[in-house]
Amino acid sequence: MIAFLLRRSAQSLLVLLAMSVLVFVGVYLIGNPVDILISSQADQAERERAIAALGLDRPLWSQYAHFVGGALHGDLGRSFAHGVPALELILARMPATMELAFVAMLLAVGLGIPLGLWAGLKPDGFASRLIMTGSILGFSLPTFWVGLMLIMVFAVFLGWLPSNGRGETVQWLGVSWSVLTLDGWAHLILPAINLALFKLSLLIRLTRAGVREALVTDYVKFARAKGLSARRIVGVHVLKNIMIPIVTVIGLEFGSVVAFAVVTESVFAWPGMGKLLIDSINVLDRPVIVAYLMVIVLLFVLINLVVDLAYSALDPRVRLGAAGGTP
C-alpha cells in the first residue's frame, strides 16, 4: 500500500513537472509581451526598467528556473495586470468556481442516476425514450449556447432570475459563499444547470448501460429466482454493481466540470477562476495563465490519485499494484 502510494505520488510529481515545462514554454511563445505590457509612449529608459522589473530580459531557461524555484515556495509570479501575486488571485476566485462545480455535479448525479435507472429498467417505455432523446440533445447542445438561451428565457423574457454575477454572498471561513443566501442561489441556479447538462446526459447513459448489462447477469437472475422483491434486486444487486464505474466517472468528471466552468463563467459573468483565465488570456497576463494551469493540473493529478485509491477500495478485485501499472 505504501509502495503504491509512493509510486503514484512520484508519477504525479513527474506529470506536474512535465506539464509545467509544457505550459511555461507554450505560454511564453506568445508574441512579445513587452509591446503589450508597456505603453508605446514610454521612453527607452522606462521600457528597460519595466522589462527588468518583470524579468523579461533574462533567457527562457533562467525565467523557467526562477518560476520553478518560486513555485516550490508557492510563488507563481505576479500578475502583470493586477500587480498582485498570481496564485493569490487564483485562490481568491477558486471558491466561486468550486461552489458552481459542486452544485452542478450534485444536480447531474441527483438527476442522472434515477433517470438512467428508469431508462434502463423500462427501456421500451415512453418516458425512457424521452429521457434518452433528451440525453442525445444534452450531448449535442453546445454549453455556451444553452447558457445564452437560459439567460434569454429566464432572465430576459420571464425576468425570474438574474443573468450575471454571484449575487449576495456571506463570509464563512474567510471566504465568500453564494450558497448561503437566497439571492446567491438565484444567481447560482442558471449557471449550475448550464454546467450540469452535459454531465447529466453522460450519467444517464452510463447508468442505463450499466443497468441493462446487470439485468441479464446470472446473479440478478438468481436473485429473481429466489423471489426477492424488485426493490431489493434493483437497490442491492443492480445498483451496487454499477456504482463502481459510476463513482469513478463522477470523480474523473469533476475535474472536467471545473475546466468547463471556463465557458459557463464567461457566459454568466460568474467571477470564478475560469473567467479570470479568459480575461488573462485576452490581455496576455502570463503569470496568471501559468498559475491557473498549474492549479488545474495539480487538481487533476490529485483527483486521479483519489479516484485510483477509491477504485481499489470499492472493488476488491482490483489489485493496487495493477492499478498503478500500465493499463
Binding site: V23, V27, I30, A259, F260, V262, I281, I289, L293, N304
Partner: peptide, 19 residues
C-alpha cells in the same frame, strides 16, 4: 496523459500560445 485532461483546456492553452 493527454486524454486525462479535458480537450477544451488543452485547446485554450494552445490558442493562448499560438494566437
Amino acid at each position: 496523459l493527454q486524454l486525462s485532461f479535458p480537450a477544451i483546456l488543452i485547446a485554450l492553452v494552445l490558442l493562448a500560445a499560438l494566437g
